[in-house]
Simulated assay, not measured.
Amino acid sequence: MKAYVNETLCVGCGTCEALCPDVFKLEGAVAKVIRQTCTDCCQSAKESCPVEAIWLEE
């Protein structure tokens, strides 16, 4: 599974980075995917995003 962030929707709250630092990192006020291959925490990060800016694809 691969992780993606819609940078237009992202508000930079940092929840994804806190939950899944191997995959997400805040750069300025926007989250970026630093390792596209998901780990176990990706689903939690997706579900916790307040603006639904994260999606996962097989």
Rank of each mutant, 00 (worst) to 15 (best):
M1N: 08
M1S: 09
M1G: 04
M1R: 12
A3S: 08
A3Q: 06
A3N: 06
Y4A: 07
Y4Q: 06
V5W: 01
N6P: 00
N6Q: 02
N6M: 03
T8C: 03
T8K: 15
L9H: 03
L9T: 10
L9D: 12
C10P: 07
C10D: 11
C10L: 10
V11T: 15
V11Q: 12
G12F: 03
C13K: 09
C13I: 10
C13V: 11
T15Y: 12
C16T: 13
C16K: 10
A18I: 15
A18F: 10
L19A: 06
L19C: 06
L19M: 11
C20H: 10
C20N: 08
C20W: 11
C20I: 10
P21N: 11
P21H: 09
D22S: 13
D22A: 14
V23H: 02
F24D: 04
F24I: 07
E27R: 14
E27P: 03
E27M: 14
E27L: 13
A29F: 03
A29R: 11
V30L: 09
V30Y: 01
A31K: 03
K32R: 11
K32C: 02
K32E: 06
V33T: 09
R35P: 00
Q36H: 13
Q36G: 10
T37A: 13
T37D: 15
C38V: 14
C38W: 10
T39L: 13
D40A: 15
D40M: 14
C42S: 00
C42F: 02
Q43F: 00
A45D: 12
A45Q: 08
A45M: 06
K46E: 13
K46P: 01
C49N: 03
C49Q: 04
V51N: 09
V51K: 11
E52V: 12
E52R: 14
I54G: 02
I54V: 05
I54Q: 02
I54L: 07
I54Y: 01
W55Y: 14
W55V: 10
W55N: 10
L56Q: 07
L56I: 15
L56C: 05
L56H: 05
E57Q: 07
E58C: 01
E58N: 09
